[in-house]
């Protein structure tokens, strides 16, 4: 049996604004658009994924927050409505999610064997978080692949950014081992922004792009520095300075997504594909992908 592999890693931010702006039939509110730099970037990434052969998407999301280790979705189907607790005016999304339970269980077992506190989530009434839904809708709007969601352990809050880095790295290696043993081709998704300080007020028309800008210049400079390092293939260095970036920009990488994904992919030293950068309600968001296949890897932007 062929070894399983990670065929792409995506940094895919989840502001519900991008789904709202796309007006998919699953979302109740209607918009006049907005945030095109991100949406068009997502559209390009979705087209690339159509040309990649893969079996499953595995997402680590900071909006399923757990304090007792990492949890894994453990039922085949979750059909519900997701209403964003922060932006319910923008995101009320009807979803029907299929889960690759076999792979999820394999990853959880691998985590447990590595000494990581973990658990399967098997309550049928559980509502999948909106981070998973936004990221997965934007990279695969056809919803034709099963997924697995992994919760974000809040080790940054309980201990420190450095502990988060260590624990998320260990989880990434365990997940990678399980994927290899599964024989499946998997797309990893770290669902989060870079800098993450929000404005606390909202424009009367949320998609009024004359009101949208980064929260402050410091956040922008940090975001640009990290994106530059991504372009240069310096992911080991990015993960190394992540604790400082988190402290200075409230970066959403504090949930462990980027560290987890980079550890699972062996800390790529090749250039990331950059698909777009834009602020959403003050936060800094980049869409980036790491393609291990040098023949399909491209300079996008």
């Amino acid at each position: 049996m062929a070894n399983g592999e990670i065929v792409l890693g995506c940094l895919a931010p989840h502001p519900p604004h991008v789904v709202y702006a796309e007006n998919p039939e699953q979302n109740e509110p209607f918009s006049e658009g907005g945030w095109e730099a991100l949406r068009w970037g997502y559209n390009m990434l979705a087209r690339k994924l159509k040309d990649i052969d893969y079996d499953c998407i595995v997402v680590l999301t900071p909006h399923w927050q757990t304090y007792i280790g990492n949890h894994f979705l453990g039922l085949e189907r979750f059909k519900n409505i997701s209403v964003d607790p922060i932006f319910p005016n923008l995101f009320r999304f009807h979803h029907d999610i299929k889960v690759d339970v076999e792979l999820s269980e394999a990853m959880q077992r691998s985590a447990e064997e590595a000494g990581i506190v973990s658990m399967m989530m098997r309550n049928p009434d559980f509502r999948v978080d909106y981070g998973t839904i936004v990221s997965c809708h934007m990279i695969n709007p056809d919803w034709d692949k099963p997924l697995v969601t992994i919760s974000s352990n809040r080790s940054t809050h309980y201990y420190s950014d450095e502990v988060m880095n260590e624990q998320a790295s260990a989880l990434g290696k365990a997940v990678s081992k399980a994927i290899e043993e599964s024989g499946k081709k998997v797309v990893l998704v770290a669902s989060h922004s870079l800098s993450h300080r929000h404005f606390v007020t909202e424009a009367p028309l949320p998609e009024d792009m004359s009101r949208e800008h980064i929260y402050n210049h410091s956040q922008y400079v940090w975001d640009m520095k990290v994106i530059e390092m991504m372009r240069e293939g310096k992911m080991k260095e990015v993960i190394g300075i992540l604790p400082e970036m988190i402290e200075q920009t409230m970066a959403e990488a504090e949930g462990g997504g980027l560290t987890w994904m980079m550890a699972a992919m062996g800390m790529p030293d090749y250039p990331a594909e950059i698909y777009g950068y834009q602020s959403v309600i003050g936060t800094g968001n980049v869409i980036a992908a790491w393609d291990p296949n040098s023949s399909t890897r491209a300079i996008v932007l």
Partner: peptide, 22 residues
Amino acid sequence: IIGHQIQAHPNPVFTHVDDDFH
């Protein structure tokens, strides 16, 4: 995040599951 939110639905109905203690 957007200021302070106040629940005003006259009759909210749902089934809730806790993130940690599901």
